[in-house]
Design a protein around this nucleic acid. Structure first.
Length: 295
DNA sequence: GTCCAGGGCA
DNA sequence: TGCCCTGGAC
């Protein structure tokens, strides 16, 4: 493996292929970077952009968000999906305001201690907001390393090994390391994709162990099949949340149940009740007398 | 129509 | 290990 060749090729490819995203601007405050990473955990860039812009305009600091009720965060989250993350981001803002003097911490351990911040987000913020040299590994990076370095078609289960692999590739210079972290993710996202890799336009095709050994399919993707969304509890929960976001005040329990199950003859009559009770236990909705509202 | 991606939590 | 949501790819 030619480490220098790979790093230089990926970074210069990134210089031409990378989109001009506002959170990549070096002047972007750490708080805005943290918000972008929360949103990008689960959502494509195109959908995140308008929500992110509105969010940091409305809540330019952690304390500003912490001063509003969490339900406002859930409403502003809109349809980004996984609305528990809006609650977690609000809680993280409270923790930053209270424990860190309204300044996003730069140490990975401090970041990891924040609600909703895991190994990926902690290192992403340390690297991209503070310029620290850390391996930042998401599933795209893991796939790129599995193929280019290990000659495997797909990454295995996430492991500490992934961080070691990326750390070995990282340039010594922190700024170049930050670029490589972002570039490797981008390469995996748009070129070295899971299903249809575009090796013809890959900047590191000449070094790729997987390509060099004839694309062995030695990783039969044992990913558990995702449950269908149509008719799922998740869909029912999403419908209740949409109704609560649209209503600017409490809605009756009956209305929430009706929103959960618009089908007049649902196959699973208990599903609406499950949706409401699980949302209550997640704290995404709260009881207000006989009605329900955002927290 | 079906399948898939995405990080963190319990 | 299973669950959370949505929209886009196939």
């Amino acid at each position: 493996m030619d480490k220098i060749g790979i790093v230089d090729a990926v970074n210069s490819w990134f210089g031409t292929a990378a989109r001009d995203l506002p959170w990549r601007d070096p002047a972007t405050p750490a708080w805005a970077v943290l918000v972008s990473e929360f949103m990008l955990q689960q959502t494509q860039v195109e959908r995140v952009l308008p929500r992110w812009t509105a969010w940091i305009e409305r809540w330019p600091t952690p304390a500003a968000l912490a001063a509003d009720p969490p339900g406002e965060a859930v409403r502003a989250w809109d349809r980004l999906g996984y609305p528990r993350r809006a609650l977690w981001l609000h809680q993280a803002a409270v923790e930053i305001a209270e424990r860190h003097g309204n300044r996003v911490p730069s140490a990975v351990d401090d970041l990891l201690a924040l609600t909703g911040v895991g190994p990926y987000t902690a290192r992403a913020v340390a690297a991209f907001a503070f310029g620290e040299r850390h391996p930042v590994v998401d599933t795209n990076t893991r796939r790129v390393i599995a193929r280019a370095v290990h000659g495997r078609a797909a990454a295995g289960m996430p492991a500490a090994r992934d961080l070691d692999d990326m750390a070995k590739l990282l340039p010594d210079d922190p700024a170049a390391a930050a670029v490589f972290n972002a570039a490797a993710m981008e390469l995996g996202a748009i070129v070295c994709t899971a299903r249809a890799p575009r090796c013809d336009v890959c900047p590191i095709a000449e070094w790729c162990e997987w390509r060099g050994s004839g694309y062995p399919d030695n990783a039969p993707a044992k990913r558990p099949k995702q449950a269908r969304f149509e008719g799922s509890d998740r869909q029912a929960r999403g419908r209740v949340m949409a109704a609560l976001r649209a209503a600017h005040g409490p809605v009756t329990r009956a209305a929430a149940l009706a929103a959960a199950a618009p089908d007049p003859s649902p196959r699973d009559p208990a599903q609406a009740e499950r949706a409401v009770s699980s949302l209550l236990s997640d704290g995404l909705i709260v009881a207000a007398g006989d009605a329900l509202r955002l927290p």
